[in-house]
Design a protein around this nucleic acid. Structure first.
Lengths: 227, 227
DNA sequence: ATAACAATGTACGAAATGGTACGTTCAGTC
DNA sequence: GACTGAACGTACCATTTCGTACATTGTTAT
């Protein structure tokens, strides 16, 4: 009998189940993202993810087949979210120098604000990118990033404020490296050199350094003379 | 009787055991280094480490107490090895610009040649540097790195070829970031951007980029005029 | 030689952990 | 209202995995 027996609690409140597939799935994914990013693929525990979810362990296997598949979906979702945010940047109407400056600062801050994503990428690299390789989705998402940078760079070269001969892909590599390291190695670097790298004032300094560094690297050696 | 019984094999060759503590310990540590760097703390299996060793699982617990302690020793040994190699660099007799150039290239190449170390550091960061924090040894090892760089930088400023106002620690951060990322994110970057980052010609390009970038950042804006 | 301790091998235990069998409830359709 | 498939809960199984008990062999000091 599911009818409300007025006897007190033993089976407790006995709430009616509400089916809500989308929300359950999303909930699982959110919890999994945090667990995997925190402990890695092998370190994360399905039971623990289940506990932290409103759903049960059964549901994880219902929606995501097994642990590795869940991890893969987590990774895909993370990339999707990031690329979505990046797409909001509107650089076309800015002067090249200003645009590049903005792009670098955006990347730096964005990474800093999304450690979960960074950690997932670290973990994926520990796995030699083997899951990323399985995902056509992620591959397709990332073309755009280079396009944006290419656009800015080409305009800069045409206007004479950027020097020629640089490869946008390599430029993106440099920007990524500096922004990524800021998050990925924060703990070891802070501890080894006894430096509060996470402190706001130091983060600001690093952001400035990184921006300056990229600009100095790209800028034409001598300011363009107005022809 | 351990005397060579000439009867044939059943208990097989029945070789005399040779006690060799140091070698066993070193062997375990070497295998552990590779296993941990490949699969992380939670991903590595004590049984698998034992199999790949000439010793048995029992020996691992005999010399290293438990899994986490073994991991810590692995990390310490890795840092020790690295700092030892770094110490061989002799920059004092070089001109500042040349010395800095040399230092950057060395760091870049060194990281590239020691992926196991890089991966251990990545893994340690996934663990929020919690093991590194326990090790006084590692803390003490790392002061020297900054000293070397400080020396070069100060000389450069005095000679007028470097600009003032930079913090050697932050400079080291920049150099590390670029060199580290080259190894740590090789897999994801290569896959996402369909770029053979590991190919020798691209590695050479990146090394040049990184060196150039650091030099441009540090160099005085206008070449020093001989007073 | 022999005591005493260090070094090693073998087998096993207990808990953790990924995954599943099986049953129940919900929600839309006829 | 009966039927059906999707959505969900509970209990459980099999294996893996860290760690240890116990026995044995080598080594060195006396």
């Amino acid at each position: 009998m599911t009818a409300p027996s007025n006897k007190v609690s033993p089976p407790a409140v006995r709430r009616r189940r509400k089916n809500n597939p989308e929300s359950v799935r999303a909930d699982i994914l959110a919890v999994a993202t945090h667990e995997f990013s925190e402990k890695g693929l092998s370190g994360a525990r399905i039971d623990e993810i289940a506990e932290k979810t409103r759903a049960s362990k059964r549901m994880i296997y219902y929606y995501f087949k097994d642990k590795e598949t869940l991890y893969l979906h987590t990774l895909e979702a993370a990339y999707q979210k990031v690329r979505l945010q990046e797409a909001e940047l509107a650089l076309d109407h800015l002067a090249p120098l200003e645009a590049l400056c903005r792009l670098v600062r955006f990347t730096f801050c964005h990474h800093a604000k999304n450690p979960d994503f960074i950690r997932l990428v670290m973990i994926e690299n520990i796995h030699h990118g083997r899951f990323l390789a399985q995902s056509e989705l992620i591959q397709s998402l990332n073309a755009g990033v280079i396009d944006v940078l290419t656009n800015v760079y080409v305009r800069g070269v045409e206007e004479g404020c950027f020097r020629e001969g640089l490869d946008p892909r390599e430029l993106h590599w440099l920007i990524s490296a500096l922004s990524f390291f800021n998050v990925s190695n924060l703990h070891t670097f802070s501890r080894i050199f006894d430096w509060q790298q996470a402190a706001p004032e130091n983060q600001q300094k690093l952001e400035d350094h990184v921006t300056e560094m990229v600009l100095r690297y790209v800028r034409a050696d001598r300011p363009a003379l107005t022809s």
